[in-house]
Simulated assay, not measured.
Amino acid sequence: MATTKIVYSCIARGSTILCSYQTAPTQCSTEAEAAVVLDLMIPDRRLKRHGRCTFHTPNYTFYCVVRKGMVYMCASNPESEKRTNYLFLSDEKKTFMQAGLMDKVSEATSHSLDAVFRNQLAQLTLKHFSIGPSLEILQSDLHEVKITIGQNFDKLMARGENLDYLTAKAKDLESAAESFKVTSNNLEKHGCCSFYRWRILAGVIAGIVLFVVIMFVLWLTGVIRDGPLPWEPELPPIIPLFPPAPPSENN
């Protein structure tokens, strides 16, 4: 693993450097390059509320982390390892936030925070000035792995809850479909029984009406009637035109 040498660090608001520290004696050269990098971040649309980026110059590699408009920057040798520099920037941001200086950022001018934060920045920079494979890097990697595993576990749990919810919904729909099927079959049977019941009743009524009509017709025609109708006049007895012959004496 290549050795990481952090030679410069600063905290800026936009393109204004509020506090900086450099281990090498060429302060003006490195800070001038840092100012150029900050100026390049704005037109390049890299100065966002959250994000990180890397810039390469002939002498150094600049690493930047942006949080809520604040830029946390460091410069190290070109062959340095990226994760080591970002580990330093994470410590730098955390220390600056814990120092309670965020309320002074909006009104701060160039290097106005050197008096209150440069010593802490120097301690961090010297701590990471020459760092190779260390326990902190391994712990940082382990912490990232733990966070990733936790996020994946939460996603799996959320998916499991969604699957349980969908399974319960599917069972409810299946039960509702089965109940609907039973109800529809019962209604179908009841409808068929009612249909045939009404047909039988209609047939019986039609038979009764037909029987009454036939009997009435037979009664009117005298087939099943003895005597005239009540409204017909009674006919006189029929007198024969030729009286019957008297019986002979011989008989």
Rank of each mutant, 00 (worst) to 15 (best):
A2Q: 14
A2L: 09
K5V: 02
K5R: 09
I11N: 02
S15G: 00
S15P: 01
I17K: 00
C19S: 08
Y21K: 01
A24D: 09
T26R: 03
S29Q: 11
T30N: 08
T30G: 01
T30W: 03
A34E: 04
A35P: 00
V36S: 06
V37N: 14
D39M: 12
L40A: 13
L47H: 14
L47W: 14
R49F: 00
R49M: 06
R49D: 07
R49Y: 02
C53K: 02
C53R: 12
F55Q: 04
T57C: 07
T57S: 15
N59Q: 08
N59C: 04
Y60V: 10
F62D: 03
C64P: 00
V65M: 11
R67W: 01
R67M: 01
G69R: 05
Y72E: 00
N77Y: 01
E79T: 12
E81D: 04
E81A: 03
N85Q: 07
N85D: 12
F88D: 02
F88M: 01
L89S: 01
K93L: 14
K94F: 02
M97Y: 08
D103N: 10
V105E: 01
A108Y: 03
A108M: 02
T109A: 13
T109L: 09
R118V: 03
R118G: 02
A122I: 04
Q123H: 05
Q123A: 08
T125Y: 00
F129D: 11
I131H: 05
I131L: 10
G132T: 07
P133Q: 13
E136T: 04
I137D: 02
I137R: 05
S140W: 03
S140E: 15
S140L: 00
S140Q: 08
L142M: 14
T148I: 03
Q151M: 10
F153R: 10
D154F: 03
K155H: 10
L156N: 09
M157Y: 05
R159T: 10
E161W: 08
T167M: 13
A168N: 13
K171V: 15
L173D: 15
A177G: 03
F180H: 07
K181T: 11
V182H: 10
N185M: 14
K189F: 08
K189I: 12
H190K: 13
G191I: 04
C192M: 14
Y196Q: 09
W198A: 14
W198N: 15
R199C: 14
I200K: 14
L201R: 15
L201K: 13
G203S: 15
V204A: 08
V204S: 05
I208L: 15
V209P: 04
V212Q: 09
M215R: 06
L220Y: 09
T221R: 11
G222P: 05
R225L: 04
G227Q: 08
P230Y: 07
W231F: 13
W231N: 05
E232W: 11
E234H: 03
P236I: 06
P240E: 08
A245L: 10
P246E: 15
S248E: 05
E249M: 06
